[in-house]
Amino acid sequence: MTSDEMTSGIDTIHQSYLADRRIRRIWKFVILLMTLTFGVWTVDVLNIPIERVLRMFGPLATMVTERLMPPDLYYVMEPLILASILETIEMSVLGVVGGLLIAMPMAWLGAWNVTPNRNFIYPMARAVIVVARAVPTLMWAILLVAIFGFGPFAGTLALLKSTIGFAGKLMAEQVEAIDMERVDAVRATGANEIQVFFYGILPQVKPAWVGISIYSWDSGFRGSTILGFVGAGGMGLYLRAQISVMEYHTAMGLITAVIGLVILSEALSHYLRHKLY
């Protein structure tokens, strides 16, 4: 190979590199253009006037500095509000405990590796978990309020639903990750499906399930603070009432209380999960 041929070889490689780069640049440009067009189209569909976006910072700043601050924490200390906070906690505990009692069998029946029947029971259990996750909890709460009337009972049922979806999925994932040899060993002794669950599956997933249960309560408590918005019990009722009569300082006091309680519940759940392992 002469040095001339080598140079031309390098030249062709260089040429093809340049052509590649040009094509890539064109593609980048086309994608950018498409993204921009899409962005403009979405703003058009959503019907958002641009001048409103540009003028929104003033009202937002006034809102935060004048209307929201300082939060009125004395309002939160009123017995009525404290009772509603207690009711919120009770709802969250009841809803989550009830939900876990349904989620645990669903997680077992809906785990592909250990489900007693793959053609019928597995898809049914999966469907329960998937639908429970997909229906928005607040809408579910509205439907329940329409059926069962105002009060914490509807809220408790709504939390039951969200716990089935939340805990059911996580628990089923844990069951699908277990060591099947131990399950087969229990099965080899002639155990029936329920005995297999209690002696082959449950001991393996117990620590994880306990952690998930505590986490579900934490998540359920967050959800329960707003269920009162639709009349399903708890402190959300007062928050909505205060905002709708434009009592922003007391509303902000309630929001501060919610944030404080959520942080507390998260700390408690973190502490319990680490203590139990």
Binding site: L46, N47, I48, R52, V53, M56, P59, L60, T62, M63, L68, L138, R222, G223, T225, I226, F229, L239, R240, I243, M246, Y248, I255, V258, I259, V262, I263, E266
Partner: peptide
């Protein structure tokens, strides 16, 4: 992370009015 989206939405609606913004 600890404030529910509905609370944010209520505050923004009361500051900016209705709509998707």
């Amino acid at each position: 992370r600890s404030t529910h989206e509905i609370i944010f939405a209520l505050l923004f609606v009361s500051a900016l009015g209705l709509g998707p913004l």
